[in-house]
Design a protein around this nucleic acid. Structure first.
Length: 879
DNA sequence: ATCGATAAGATCGAC
DNA sequence: TCTTATCGAT
């Protein structure tokens, strides 16, 4: 009797559980319900891996093994059965606590689950999706990045290794400063061993779990290697002394902690009974070790990743982690998620055909049910301005047809490529946001303010002290600080301790007054810190340190900086409000130091987004533009020397392509100003690799005119032999075939390797420039910004004029162009009162017109807002 | 004589 | 932005 009730309950329970996950496909369900033991989810781009992750965690917590179990904990009654029936019929109703208990067989408590994500933002999203499914319970899952998780472990248990619980986290900027100092001290020549190389190598040592002494054993007799070990050793000593850890340390030291203190490891093993790792293809060896150590007992390790999307080899990620997972933890179950829900068939085919050129893959072909969609477009522009113009015009078209700005993303290989696009967008009045590049927390004033806060929290932080001790000026210069540093090294104490006892040191007599003043300021700040709540602290620091006064005196730029600090103050207030009682200065600083620019991305704002291909990982947009699809840019010239690097570039391309949902445009230019030189690059080989049936080609009007122009002028050119490569009417399929290696024509000859393009290029110029396989339809787009008809001459001038005055040799910090445009006047005229039409903002009225260096700044009142834009660059037409 | 401030010059990889 | 040269102040 009882048995029968139990059986029908189990059957109903199975039905109920299945109902909770019906929206998943078969593979996804298999992944959700697969039981204990190592599990590898090979999840292609857009295959719904986050959904699987969330559902798998939810299933673990809510039902445990119940899906495949005949057991019931507790004794279900006929009433329970009736209730479960009702719940199945009415999925909106929530079971009560008793029913939840009956539904669960050996579930895992949320706080026993560790979910590692790639960014803090992803961790937050995971939690909020879990909360949506599970309520409060979802919040108790330990979801974080490797780094955040390690910080928590080290703060709690790191003292065993000799680190204070209040250790400082050094960002890459700090690391560079430290290394610079070491270079000076050991008088190392940057030319012999570039600073970046040393920092990179040290980072690699840590990724590989190699300590300075082990490195010494490994390095052999090579002078460079020995120097590197020396630098590594000194660097580590310095970090330990100042109680600081760099990003790599967070992982490295945690692994060391676990290896050296088995009891501590055991404690965390008990805590994390179930481990999930997202983006596993981008984990380092040290991170693998961490997972291995934590998971060794229960082996409940589920990793999710896509070997084709491994794009962080350069910073220590080893693709081997995912390639070898099957065997590293014993026999692992492998489930492939290959159905793509994101992109059209054309986009997906393009992605597949590119990635197929890689060897060393797990092998996986994405497929989709969705329609073919628009073919991928390869757009050839004359130069980077032309390219920017095309992207802007294309976005404007979409917007005019009803798309939103935020449906568009522009991706590029290097941050430097954003500048011309930004420049154009600013002038066109197109709202955009750059992710990465110049980060908020990289600004000097923000770093300074944070440095003040840091030294309050960690008085041993000499590095941050050095940053602000003379900011604003306090008559404490380099020489004085060197003396202080020397004394501190002698006594093995911190700089601040020396400063607190200035009068004891005759060598400091000259600077004693200034130092004493600073010491008093420091004490005052500490006192204030004790007395006031956290949210008021930054304001006080700003005031008492004289930082505000300094910025006030600077005028306009200072005002802008003060505004930034205002944002910082707001952020602190927000933090204090969120955390309430738990808020602490240390906690805030930690949160800040682990922020990456991806974390601060707000997708609600209606803006075009620009970012590097790396930053785009994990994101998706209806419309994607990848600019700079050229040999030497993407793939970059650095990658042409090793097959591994080239494969990584190709994966990066794959990542880029698979970000697109509806439409993808790949743009290349015939000539591009880079590193202060105009270069002619061939279109990227990745374009050649895309299956022709899903790719269209289009030339900008200028690029077209330039072709006929060059053909007419024959050999005359400014570009030396390189000219030939830009001359054909398009890239020819198969051109690369049979060429084992590619070098880039970054200089015109003479640097050792002759360009393999030479022959092909000349052949192209001389022979017929066919357009097999390419669909060329230049007449498709009409850009209203172009006025009048083209003469060949004017096309030439137009193309060669750096029309926006942008000079890439000047670093380009913000959105404000540094140079004025060069004689672009007279092309378009607007007067106050004119009714004008803008591609994005619609119809508006000109409010003011101001001549600016050859162009006109027009202020236009649209229905939504009043915008200022440059007459010659904005997609504005007079009605 | 020494130190600090100021002004002018090179810089350029993805996190 | 960080480094380098020169000037002015102590």
């Amino acid at each position: 009797m009882d048995d029968q009730i139990k059986q029908s309950f189990v059957a109903l329970r199975r039905q109920y559980i299945d109902n909770c996950f019906t929206r998943l496909n078969d593979r996804q369900q298999e992944a959700v319900f697969y039981g204990n033991g190592p599990l590898l989810l090979l999840a292609g781009a857009g295959s719904g891996k986050t959904t699987v992750l969330v559902n798998r965690i939810a299933n673990l917590i809510r039902f445990g093994d119940a899906r495949y179990s005949d057991e019931v904990f507790g004794s279900p009654t006929a009433q329970d059965i009736a209730q479960l029936r009702r719940l199945i019929d009415q999925p909106d109703n929530q079971p009560d606590a008793r029913m939840e208990g009956l539904l669960r067989v050996g579930g895992i408590a949320p706080y026993h689950i560790l979910a590692i994500t790639f960014t803090n933002k992803a961790a937050g999203e995971l939690k909020s999706r879990l909360s949506a499914m599970l309520g409060q319970t979802g919040q108790d899952v330990f979801a974080s990045t490797f780094h955040s998780a390690c910080v928590r472990i080290l703060r709690r248990s790191g003292e065993a290794l000799g680190y204070p619980s209040g250790f400082t986290i050094y960002d890459s900027d700090d690391v560079q400063r430290i290394m610079k100092k070491i270079y000076k001290e050991l008088s190392v020549d940057d030319k012999f061993m570039p600073l970046k190389q040393a920092i990179n190598s040290i980072s690699h040592y840590k990724d590989q779990m190699i300590s300075p002494s082990e490195a010494a054993k490994l390095c052999g007799g090579d002078a460079k290697a020995r120097l590197l070990v020396k630098l590594y050793t000194v660097y580590e000593e310095l970090l330990k002394k100042t109680g600081g850890m760099d990003f790599d340390d967070l992982i490295y030291q945690t692994v060391r902690l676990f290896e050296q203190f088995p009891d501590i490891l055991e404690q965390y093993r008990r805590k994390f009974q179930y481990i999930l790792v997202d983006e596993y293809q981008d984990t380092s060896h040290a991170q693998f070790r961490l997972v291995e150590l934590l998971g060794a007992g229960h082996r409940n390790i589920c990793v999710v990743g896509d070997d084709d999307q491994s794009i962080y080899r350069f910073r220590g990620a080893t693709i081997e982690n995912i390639l070898n997972f099957e065997h590293q933890f014993g026999e692992a179950k492998v489930i492939r998620l290959e159905q793509n829900y994101r992109s059209t068939a054309n986009i997906l085919n393009a992605a597949n055909s590119v990635i197929e050129h890689n060897r060393g893959r797990k092998g996986k072909t994405l497929w989709t049910d969705s329609e073919k969609g628009t073919p991928v477009l390869h757009f050839v522009a004359e130069n980077e301005q032309d390219e920017a113009k095309h992207v802007a015009a294309s976005i404007a078209e979409h917007v005019a047809a009803g798309a939103r700005l935020r449906d568009h993303a522009i991706l590029y290989r290097m941050n430097a490529l954003s500048a011309p696009v930004e420049n154009y967008f600013v002038r066109a009045g197109l709202p955009y946001k750059v992710i990465g590049g110049h980060k908020f927390y990289d600004r000097k004033e923000i770093k300074d303010m944070l440095a003040y806060l840091h030294i309050l929290s960690n008085p041993m932080d000499d590095l941050r002290l050095e940053r602000i001790i003379n900011e604003p000026g306090r008559k404490i210069g380099g020489a004085t600080l060197e003396t202080v540093a020397m004394l501190a090294a002698d006594e093995g104490c911190s700089w601040l301790q020396i400063i607190s006892r200035v009068q004891q040191y005759p060598v400091l007599s000259r600077a004693s007054k200034s130092l004493l003043n600073f010491w008093q300021l420091y004490q005052k700040l500490q006192e204030v810190r004790r007395q006031i709540p956290l949210e008021e602290l930054p304001e006080q620091v700003l005031e008492l340190t004289g930082y505000r006064a300094m910025l006030k005196a600077e005028g306009e730029e200072g005002e802008a900086r003060l505004e930034n600090i205002g944002q910082l103050i707001t952020a602190v207030k927000k933090y204090a409000l969120e955390r309430g009682e738990d808020a602490s200065l240390e906690g805030y600083l930690e949160e800040v130091s682990l922020i990456t620019d991806l974390d601060s991305y707000d997708e609600n704002a209606d803006l075009v987004v620009m970012m590097t291909l790396h930053a785009a990982k994990g994101l998706e947009y209806p419309y994607i533009y990848i600019v700079g699809m050229e040999e030497g840019v993407f793939p970059g010239q650095m990658s042409s020397f090793s097959a591994e690097d080239m494969e990584e570039e190709r994966r990066l391309c794959y990542v880029g392509i698979t970000r697109a949902q509806k439409e993808l445009q790949l743009c290349s230019t015939e000539s591009r100003m880079m590193y202060g030189q105009t270069r002619r690059n061939r279109p990227s080989r990745f374009l050649e690799e895309i299956a022709p049936e899903c790719l269209n080609e289009e030339y900008s009007e200028t690029a077209q005119e330039m072709h006929s122009l060059r053909n007419r002028w024959g050999d005359e050119d400014d570009y030396g032999t390189d000219r030939a490569f830009g001359c054909g009417n398009g890239p020819k399929r198969g051109m690369y075939q049979g060429k084992p290696e590619y070098t880039n024509n970054n200089k015109t000859g003479g640097d050792g390797y002759s360009s393999p393009y030479h022959g092909g290029g000349l052949r192209m110029a001389a022979g017929n420039s066919t357009m097999q396989n390419s669909v060329n339809k230049p007449e498709k787009t009409e850009r209203p910004t172009e006025s009048g008809e083209f003469s060949i001459r004017s096309a030439y001038e137009r193309a060669n004029r750096r029309s926006d005055g942008f000079d890439p040799s000047v670093s380009f910090g913000g959105v404000t162009p540094k140079k004025e445009p060069v004689k672009a006047a007279g092309e378009k005229k607007f007067e106050v009162g004119d009714t004008v039409h803008h591609k994005i903002f619609g119809t508006g009225t000109v409010v003011s017109v101001t001549p600016v260096a050859g162009d006109m700044l027009v202020e236009v009142e649209f229905a939504a807002a009043t915008k200022k834009m440059m007459a010659n660059y904005a997609p504005l037409t007079k009605d």
